[in-house]
Amino acid sequence: MLKVESLDKRYGQFQAVNNVSFTLEPGQIMGFIGSNGAGKTTTIKMLATLLEPTSGRAELNGRVIDSNDLEVRKQIGYMPDFFGLYEDIKVWEYLDMFATLYGVPSEDRGRVIDEVLELTDLGFKKDAFAQSLSRGMQQRLCLARCLVHNPSLLLLDEPASGLDPRARSELKELIGELGRMGKIVIVSSHILPELADFSTVVGIIEQGNLLAFGSVKDVVRSMTPAKKVQVRLLEKGAEASMWLHGKAHVSGTEFVNPNELRFDFTGQPEDQAELLRALINEGFPVVEYLDEEANLEDLFMRVTKGALN
């Protein structure tokens, strides 16, 4: 279990991360969302032991994440938003080096390297030079590097940046698979629709503050007080608009087309059902009556203020 408590990072008078707290269980994949400079990378770096928090703490499986504790690092796999590949080194040599650094016994190293190469679909490139791989393959190699020591926490900072749609799709499947393997995964990304696909929870950070944390649905619900409801009628669109005006929980009625209306609704599901019943009782010929569910991207645009730098 990963437990983050009141994590703070301050550089002089600049507060990069402010009182961030959350908890993740094994198998949970957290989509970490925020504008550039919002504090995502700083938080991830603190969890990777690369930065020291000004105050607060994080615990992984009961062990404090501290740069002076080498044991806790064995449980963490960190993939930054750059590759960090060496020149003149082969794929297997690169993985062998990190397997050695992470203390994988020499007798197991060959097998582990083959397994992670198979998982990341890079087995056929084992003897190729790392720099000669395509961008997508290099990204997968970096992920393979994170996996050689079988960590329980994976920190992936912008893993999908610069990848083509096919590579992104493959990466998405791979991350989903890691979650199913029981790993805690934190993924920061700007590609929000894809993040919503495989994240079991999301965290939205802005100016160092964690604005929301929870399942995608809960976060969207909690951060969106009014949902959009769309009604399509056979006729009487204008009358329906007038009838809706002033009804409880209804505001901002607008026409999508002459017989199709959209409005903001702030009531409970029971209130929404009552409104539909009243519409029909009033003789409006309702063809469709549906929720337009807010997505992560809408929510992100609404709650964040944009780049800080």
């Binding site: 690369l50 044991e71 690092r73 963490i76 930054p80 960090g84």
Partner: peptide, 18 residues
Amino acid sequence: VSEYELQSMDLVKCSPTS
């Protein structure tokens, strides 16, 4: 210096080695 230029220093620094 190449570790800094290739941005691999962070990867080594977060490994469980001193």
